[in-house]
Amino acid sequence: MKIQKLFQKTLVGIFFLFAVISLSTSALCIYTVDTHLSAEYESNSRGIAKTISDSSVDILLNRDLSALQSLIDQFIEIQGISYIYITSEHGEFLAHTFVPGIPTEIARSDHSSRATVERSLPGMGDFVEVSSPILAGVAGAVHIGMDTGLIALKIQRAVGQQVYLISSIFIIGVFSAIWLVRLAAKPIDSVIAYAARLARERNKDSSDDKLLARDDEVGQLARLFLHFSTVMDFDKARGTPPGENA
């Protein structure tokens, strides 16, 4: 009964330990993945925006806008890039990838800013927008929106995989704990049984060779029980209180 209680406490302990591990590693994972992915996406987007802006100069100055559209259509196929638009130095949209139309928030925004902008577009999602000037800005700018929902999805996947791993380890740990506690409890049960037998059958020969022959703590405990029993029998025979001549 006491062993079962001891086991329950161990189990609760393990559960709390794993919960703490799970929560702390998930939080760390979210922070790490979010930070790294956001930085990586922003860096890639800036690189792509710069590539497009560098390529756009010749097209804007010498060629038809369909060539510019063809150029940005190739980049929109890259995962994570949700929209691209190119504005003139006057803020006019020269090419874009929006369907069914340019979102009002973007149409009304200041396109001269080169800072990274966080946008929440109704019906489209959340985006981080980076810009790159064309010909130092005198010919306009390229703007690229990357979907932050994709980062959230990747975080979800990473955390999900981590929770799955920790849960698997937790289940294996619980079964291992049950097996180990049972293994540890078995000789203790034998000692308890031996002690009970000694108390019950004091006049009989209660020696248990196997138990007394063990060289571990259980054997020592059994031999101690036998010793106390023998001392008690001896004191009883002499009429002295138990343990006085020990």
């Binding site: 038809d64 369909s66 060539a67 510019l68 559209q69 259509d73 069914p100």
Partner: peptide
């Protein structure tokens, strides 16, 4: 929303500018 559409859009924009006008809406 591709090079074909943009080519036509650019044609309309150019023709409108010759009249001093602008495209009033697009989808």
């Amino acid at each position: 929303a591709d090079a074909y559409g943009r080519s036509g859009w650019a044609g309309v924009r150019l023709a409108m500018s010759r009249h001093g006008l602008q495209i009033v809406g697009e989808a």
